[in-house]
Simulated assay, not measured.
Amino acid sequence: MSTGVLLAVLGAAFFHAAWNGLVKSGTSKVGGMAIMTLIQGIAGGAVALFHPWPAPEVWPWLLLSGAFHAGYKLFLAFAYEQGDLSRVYPIARGAAPMIVLLVGPLVLTDVLSAAEIAGILLLGGGIATMAAGSLRAREARRLVPYALGSAAMTAGYTIVDGSGARVAASAAQYVGWLFLLDVAIFSPLVTWLRGPALWRADRRTWAVGALAATFSYGAYAVAVWAMTVAPIALVGALRETSILFAVLIGWGLIGERVDRWKSAAAVLIVGGVAVTRL
């Protein structure tokens, strides 16, 4: 992976953590996620207008990805209703590279070096440390299955989108259509689960949702592009440096407590990123 791609992925990781912080800080986590998804879908539609209709071989990837993204957002919003950003986010994001590493050899052609595999495993150690801290702190146990459900969805769309974008006309075309399908799947689902009152949010909630959508769209567009020029599993792992950013945002902006478990997990995560560059 080149230095330019590395820096782009790290920048995307920061903005991914930032939009999660915005959703977590809102009064309605599910409502904030729904508004963000709606605005992303509108932006995706605008982008799609300037690109050709996806080829037939791209549609299976797009449809499967839309389902994974909808499940990811639903699990993540439910997890944020149960626990801190600096606890939920590391578990939700950090378990995903481990799943990609285990499943990837069965469905992907990318070959990782020994250092890259070691880095991903070190990232996994950081996630295990974070999860252990959650249990020791006796926080809401329900956040763990929701966070792991989100991780499973993340692993699914990482593999699907990395492969789908490689057969699409461009990463921009793929992401635009993806977010259109995402809103088409997620919005009816979340309305059915929480009712139409979900959309009657105040002006501040809509503004936060719009800002979160901007961060999310940009971050994922960069990530999908990176997966077309670098190994998918490696890009997926490097994106999880957003865990460190999320811990810092939770501590500095939301006022969450950072104990020694969170600190140790952050060190392991940074170490994992460093090892992948050896």
Rank of each mutant, 00 (worst) to 15 (best):
V5Y: 10
V5R: 08
L6H: 05
V9L: 01
G11W: 06
G11R: 14
A12W: 06
H16M: 09
K24S: 04
G26Q: 13
T27D: 14
K29A: 12
I35S: 06
Q40Y: 00
A43M: 09
P56R: 03
W59G: 10
L62P: 01
A67I: 15
A67Q: 00
A70N: 12
L74H: 12
F75D: 05
P90H: 08
G94A: 05
V100P: 10
L102Y: 08
G104M: 12
L106P: 08
V107T: 00
L108S: 10
L112T: 07
A114V: 12
A118Y: 08
A118V: 06
L121R: 04
G124L: 05
G124V: 04
I127P: 00
A128G: 05
A131R: 07
A140K: 13
R141H: 06
L143Q: 08
V144W: 13
G149V: 14
A155R: 02
G156P: 09
Y157L: 09
Y157V: 09
Y157K: 08
T158D: 07
S163F: 02
G164K: 03
G164T: 05
A168I: 01
A171G: 06
A172W: 10
G176R: 07
W177M: 09
L180W: 02
F186Y: 14
P188S: 08
P188Q: 12
T191M: 13
P196C: 05
L198A: 04
L198Q: 07
W199R: 02
R200F: 11
R200P: 03
A201F: 10
D202L: 01
D202R: 01
R204P: 00
R204D: 06
T205P: 00
A207K: 06
A210L: 10
L211C: 06
A212H: 12
A213E: 08
S216N: 15
G218R: 04
W225E: 10
P231H: 11
L234A: 12
V235L: 10
I243G: 11
A246D: 03
I249H: 04
G250K: 00
G252S: 13
R257P: 03
W261R: 00
K262L: 14
K262Q: 05
S263G: 13
A265H: 02
L268W: 13
V270E: 04
G271S: 11
T276G: 06
L278Y: 14
